[in-house]
Design a protein around this nucleic acid. Structure first.
Length: 422
RNA sequence: GCGGGUGUAGCUCAGUUGGUUAGAGCACCAGAUUGUGAUUCUGGGUGUCGCCGGUUCGAUCCCGGUCACUCGCCCCA
């Protein structure tokens, strides 16, 4: 790392990264595919601020959730307001939905993307500033929305050519009645076996017993094996809803695995919950996840409105994509003036071609050999050489870098000739 | 917040059981070549061996601390 003699620390803040080169290209590619698909499914873009009043997050995500209790970037602004950098997208979109009175125009189908912030210890696939792509449908209580949102996810991962390494795990957390009944059963069960629970899970028993289900502690897992199963506590409505979602996936030939231990970390989920997971990313296998959050808008103070959505991690997706699979940018054409007298003509030609949609590179200094080297380095398709001799004849030399051939072309024919390179 | 690993050139990494001017490949710069790239040849090291302190005649190497990165736990995209 470069060092400064004195002055500010030059490393980026822990858990943040500069995005450039292949990484930037991969991000742009993923994002283009995502936006294209979202539009095909009839979603509209929404972009909300990267910070909100702190209340927006801590009232909705759950006070006891890890995100709220220890991962938020919260600060006071100069006016004394407590603000928080968004740790996820859904709460901000829900707030925007209410702020803008969008219950008048249901259903709302949104897509969004941008940076998120969580104060965590960084590791593979986990950053303090990371980027998510987000899909939400608001105002549709029918399971068709669940199916559609999952179809978007599968389309995205398929078009990114990642579905071979990723599987969909799905569960239903049930409606409130089912979930409360199940929660009670879990508390009874785990309280009986309190002595064998890990320390972490003892705390979970108090705060959020369902999370004991995805504990990685060996003893816990043994207990979980024999714990009550959520599907036994589904009421009729929940069972029907979940079966409809699964039937929809079957109809679309979307493969899935029911994982009854899948619970989500944030409090606002109900009914459908899902994760797309891979084993190729080390400890952070979840690449895209989401679920239904029918109670969220009401909890936030709006009219009761159904909602379902998901978020995908850009960093995690791009870690799965090798850079050479990303579409190469169109190669440039280099213009090389020889001698000062040709600068103006070169400048004019470059401008003309750029306005006509060509990608033109012009180096700023160096003799011809150096400029040719640079042209080669940036993988130009061709060099347009303008020298005094050519200028007198009203022509330029066009050198094809792939076969080394060289042709003299009249200045006003340059564009026609370049069509060979399109 | 808790564990493990790693810090040597722009990048990937070698190295010294503690010894004088610290190395390789790639990259980069200059020249061979003031009108021709990719190939070739010549020359150039661009470095506080992360930082601070300790042991020592002597530390890049050993010890302590610290910072950074990294992997994992917790949790999550």
């Amino acid at each position: 790392m470069a060092k400064s003699q004195s002055g500010p620390k030059l490393q980026p803040v822990r858990g943040t990264h500069d995005i450039m080169g292949d990484k930037a290209r991969t991000f742009r590619y993923i994002n283009q595919v995502f936006q294209d698909i979202a539009k095909r499914f009839g979603h509209e873009e929404i972009s909300t601020p990267i910070f909100e009043f702190t209340e927006i997050f801590n009232r909705t995500l759950g006070e006891t959730s890890d995100v709220v209790s220890k991962e938020m970037y919260t600060f006071e602004d100069r006016g004394g307001e407590s603000l928080t950098l968004r740790p996820e997208y859904t709460a901000g979109i829900a707030r925007a939905f209410i702020s803008n009175g969008l219950q008048q125009s249901l259903p709302c189908k949104f897509f969004a993307f941008g940076p998120m912030f969580r104060y965590e210890r960084p590791q593979k696939g986990r950053m303090r500033q990371f980027h998510q792509m987000d899909i939400e449908i608001l105002g549709v209580a029918e399971p068709q929305a669940d199916i559609e949102v999952l179809a978007i996810a599968v389309t995205l991962l398929t078009e990114l050519n990642l579905m071979d390494d990723i599987s969909l795990e799905i569960n239903s957390l049930g409606d409130k009645e089912s979930r409360d009944a199940y929660r009670d059963a879990l508390v009874v069960y785990f309280t009986e076996h309190k002595a064998r629970l890990s320390e972490d899970s003892l705390a979970r028993l108090e705060k959020n017993p369902m999370r004991i289900l995805d504990s990685k502690d060996e003893n816990d897992r043994a207990l979980v094996e024999n714990a009550p199963r959520i599907s036994d506590y589904y009421n009729v409505e929940t069972r029907l809803f979940f079966d409809t979602v699964l039937a929809g996936l079957d109809a679309l030939q979307i493969k899935y695995v029911i994982n009854e231990r899948l619970v989500r970390g944030l409090d606002y989920y109900s009914h459908t919950a899902f994760e797309f997971v891979t084993s190729k990313l080390g400890a952070q296998g979840t690449v895209l996840a989401g679920g239904r959050y029918d109670g969220l808008i009401e909890k936030m103070g709006g009219q009761s409105t159904a909602g379902i959505g998901w978020a995908a991690g850009m960093e995690r997706l791009s870690d799965l994509i090798s850079p050479d699979l990303v579409t190469q940018d169109t190669r440039p054409v280099s213009i090389i003036p020889v001698g000062d007298d040709c600068q103006t003509e070169a400048l004019k030609l470059a401008y003309r071609l750029r306005k006509a949609d060509y990608i033109i590179d012009m180096s700023y200094r160096g003799n011809m050999a150096k400029r040719m080297k640079r042209a080669n380095k940036i993988s130009s398709m061709a060099a347009i050489i303008i020298g005094e001799d050519e200028l007198k004849r009203g022509t330029v030399m066009i050198k094809n870098f792939d076969d080394g051939s060289q042709t003299e072309i009249a200045l006003d024919q340059v564009m026609t000739h370049l069509n060979h390179y399109r």
